[in-house]
Amino acid sequence: MTTQSNPPSPEIRRRNTLRLFYLFVVGAIVIFTLAADAHPATQQRVLMAAGIVLAAAGIWSFLRFLQAADTHQKLINYDATSFAFAGSLALTLIFGLLQRLGFLLGASLLLPALMIALWSIGLILFSWRYQE
């Protein structure tokens, strides 16, 4: 049996969409950070619009990533999403409590980034379960 070179294997397709997702997310975070410090209002609006476009592209690539997954990868992703959800819930409660006490006032902006970080950690952790 010969391995087909075209189209790309599910593994490669999945990796590519995941890379694209991280690229868009990092881009959106950088643009939103720049927009927060931008001075002329028009420049800030342009940067915010660019950030929203990148964030939307991130969501699109995430959906592509889910579509490219086989049933085994969907199981890993389900575990990773549950892990990220539980972690985000705990961190949201901690951040909320700290904000009531006057700490971490800008931390709500960190939550989406933390969710993605936790989801990524979950993907790695739950993929290890199936390593040889």
């Binding site: 391995t3 087909q4 294997s9 599910p10 086989d70 085994h72 990868q73 390593q131």
Partner: peptide
């Protein structure tokens, strides 16, 4: 494993 994975459209890890 990679041959079979490719034939059924899943990853080798699967």
């Amino acid at each position: 494993q990679a041959d079979l994975a490719s034939a059924v459209g899943v990853t080798r890890q699967c």
